[in-house]
Amino acid sequence: MTSALIRRRRTVDAVARGAAAACVVLLLAPTAIALTALVTEGARGIVGAGGWSVVRACAGTLMLAGIASAVAIPLGVGGGLYINEYRGGTLARAGRWAAGALSEVPAVVIGLAVHALLVAAVGRFSFLWGAAALALMIAPTMAHTTADAARSVPESVREAAIALGASRWRTTLFVVSRVVHARVARAAWITAARAAGATAPLLFMTEARDWPRQLTSGDDALPLQVFDAASRPDARAGAWAAALVLVTVAGVMSYFARRAATPRGHT
């Protein structure tokens, strides 16, 4: 009697576990196929055609993502701390809402908006404006994540700081931000990796080039190179080469994210 029920529940459990494993296979199998294609075709492309231009585009991408991160990550983290620590105020509420709304705006829309705001209004500085567009993608995400992380810091931690006589700015900067450090650092690497791979905003910034742009053009970035070469069937080898380097860059950054998320020593 009971054993029949238990047996049935065990069967259902086994079926559910099998289904979950099947979902994993279903998601990872196409990815494995794509990854194999990426590595083999990319290696062939790097050996064949795209040596120097890929290196320069890689430097361009690192510079773009670096400038954007250097500006946007401190801005976003500071804003996020304010949003949580001074929550209840109008400014904090507006900032929280804006960060949540902006952090998921599609990259094409960001590109169009930055084009309208900066390129059309101020003039052509495609490289800097590209970095500005990436910064506009990074900062809201960082603010949102930081505010989220700071919110999960127990109030008792702040109370302990108060009991030791710490002022409010010290508490925020040296107690709360210590506690959230690992989570924020991880988010920073992930966000920067995503920004390094963003293509659409950069398409809007590189003004008035021939379509399709030459593979070897100024202020190049890896995503642009992939995009250009992918849209020309005769240049696919270059596209795979640039794509392989781009995925490697993103993968290395997400490795740093994982490392940042596992704190060592005291924290």
Partner: peptide, 29 residues
């Protein structure tokens, strides 16, 4: 303290910048 006030002003400016950015994006579109 004064430092607290300065700290709050800087943070508020950053949060305000986010709100301004949202308004700017929406207005541009």
């Amino acid at each position: 303290s004064n430092r607290d006030r300065a700290f709050r002003a800087v943070g508020g400016a950053l949060a305000g910048a986010l709100a301004v950015a949202f308004v700017a994006v929406a207005a541009a579109l």
